[in-house]
């Protein structure tokens, strides 16, 4: 006889069905999933960093220019500030959401978008400047990796701007529904994560590149 038979479970006491189960929390489930996406995006950047690392030896630049000859850290510093202020503005927007202020959220997101657009504008200008100098991805493996890393980040920022635009429309049309709030939280994670990636890019690509 198994021990379970010696101490039988009382059939009147046992709980077999969860009568008062409320189901899962939609926003927290959504947020967890977005964390998972951020993790995979982190791996994407890690791989690009690895490629940049492997392709940043002096021979990787073939006979073409090295970053020291074309990056402009002070110019890029303005980009950095634009992105950080954009994240800050988004943070204000999220603080306003806690008080339920629609105007505060919208203002924050608009400010965040403007600063994000400044970042993208400066990036495009910088790329055009480098291309006019003959610094293009086709020149060498090193430059290919430089462009891949920086422009994949810029593409993420661009997607973030489209997302913000969509969110502005949804806030105005629907107000703070469960879906909209969940999306705003996910967008915050996305935006902050892109800023963190930019810190690494600024340090390893622009500053390090300038000094080496």
């Amino acid at each position: 006889m198994s021990s379970a038979h010696e101490k039988p479970v009382d059939p009147d006491q046992v709980v077999l069905w969860s009568d008062d189960y409320e189901g899962h929390d939609v926003i927290s489930t959504r947020t967890f999933g977005f964390w998972m996406y951020i993790l995979s995006d982190g791996m994407l950047f890690a791989t690009l960093f690895a490629a940049y690392g492997v392709l940043s030896y002096s021979h990787s630049y073939y006979t073409g220019p090295t970053p020291a000859q074309f990056v402009a850290p002070w110019y890029t510093f303005i980009q950095t500030m634009a992105l950080f202020l954009s994240v800050l503005a988004y943070g204000f927007s999220m603080a306003a959401m806690k008080t339920g202020s629609k105007a505060g959220v919208i203002n924050g997101i608009v400010a965040s978008m403007v600063l994000g657009a400044v970042f993208i504008g400066l990036d495009i200008h910088d790329v055009l400047r480098m291309i006019s100098m003959g610094v293009t991805p086709e020149v060498s493996g090193g430059l290919s990796a430089f462009y891949a890393l920086t422009q994949v980040h810029a593409a993420h920022i661009f997607v973030g701007l489209i997302w913000m635009l969509v969110m502005l429309y949804q806030i105005l049309k629907k107000g703070f529904t469960e879906d909209v709030v969940g999306r705003l939280i996910s967008l915050r994670m996305f935006w902050q994560f892109q800023a963190v990636m930019w810190v690494f890019i600024y340090v390893f690509v622009y500053l390090w590149g300038y000094m080496s």
Binding site: T47, Y62, V139
Partner: peptide
């Protein structure tokens, strides 16, 4: 994501003329 990046870089080589994995021009 590692696969996606690896293949996107192959795609960049084939479509945009970059030199990630070419035998010359600093590719690896």
């Amino acid at each position: 994501p590692c696969l996606q990046v690896a293949l996107a870089l192959v795609g960049a080589d084939r479509y945009l003329g970059t030199h990630f994995f070419t035998a010359g021009f600093g590719g690896n």
